[in-house]
Nucleic acid binder design. Structure first.
Lengths: 170, 170
DNA sequence: TACCTTAAGTTCGATCATCAGACCAAATGG
DNA sequence: CCATTTGGTCTGATGATCGAACTTAAGGTA
């Protein structure tokens, strides 16, 4: 592992987790995977990330078993079960950011499909359970700023859609 | 904010959260705060972090309202309510790292004081609630590696102790 | 009070990571 | 069969991190 990106000699699971998902851009790439982004160009258009870094991150995520790369030609990157298991941590961090930066006006809302909205703890307010990401639908909230971006991915994300389902682009 | 550490033009609460806690070392500093570390030298001894970076991170965390700096002389850094609100996200990430890297042998165990152990979702297995960090006791688990470090902080952390309580050092 | 040690940083040159942009080969579409 | 798109790699410039030396102030001791 390259120097400056690991936390050697830290006997801690948080340090181990951060060695995998703690580098710059990695969490945002995984967020896009949950939102249905699967192709190199779409990540790049949505994230304004250098191609070299995107390439390195995707390769590392595949090597660490969080993503699969399928298709001999233009590949498709999809979350594995290990990657999907990050959802509770990602949702908790997202909620913390929401309450801190735009109190009372979430940028995105999450709903247990056919049931109720998700509370700050990830529990469905109707049935009281923690739904799996496959059963969650995301849609823009009152704090969203549609003027910020207009790439194809951002536009597609303005429609409500299920997590992990491929985005309708092109 | 310094260039290369922000995610401008991302209309996303996760990006906002990562601008605050996503930089290298920041999450580990906050972890130490939960474990009771409060002084500059102790962070430095426990983390093997450059003094310059530690100084910059602490300053940023105080500016962002996650830590307070008290004491005119040798200061003490403590979590604010905003910082403490990060606990669910941190615990979720920690559990993910634990299950991924040392399956079946957690490096650290967490217990709802006077009640039961915490499950992977942060819920007390006895009473079913999500206890606040003040009511949680941490202790080494079967996956811990006591040969890795022997600084004063690591040694003190081998005793069970409540989160947020100052560590007994010196 | 004077002296010594420790704590809490700052400063410095070297190294590592990231950036924007040019370049390139394979896959796809017509 | 050719043009375009996709999925990268390569390069020089810039920003971040590193370890080590240096500085200043606080606390302890005689």
């Amino acid at each position: 592992m390259p120097l400056g990106t690991d936390y050697a000699r830290q006997d801690c699971s948080l340090a181990r987790a951060l060695e995998i998902v703690g580098e710059r851009w990695t969490m945002l790439i995984l967020r896009d995977c949950f939102l249905g982004v699967r192709r190199f160009t779409d990540f790049q258009a949505h994230l304004d990330i250098s191609r070299a870094v995107l390439s390195a991150r995707l390769e590392a995520l595949v090597a660490d078993g969080l993503l699969t790369r399928t298709g001999s030609g233009h590949p498709s990157y999809e979350l594995t079960e290990t990657g999907i298991a990050l959802w509770p941590a990602m949702f908790a961090l997202l909620q913390w950011g929401d309450r801190l930066t735009t109190p009372g006006a979430p940028r995105r809302l999450y709903r247990h499909v056919g049931c109720g909205d998700l509370g700050p703890d990830g529990r469905c307010e109707a049935c009281g359970r923690h739904p799996a990401p496959r059963d969650v639908e995301a849609r823009p909230g009152p704090g969203a700023d549609p003027t910020l971006r207009d790439d194809a991915v951002s536009v597609a994300l303005r429609q409500p859609h299920r997590l992990l389902e491929p985005l309708a682009l092109r």
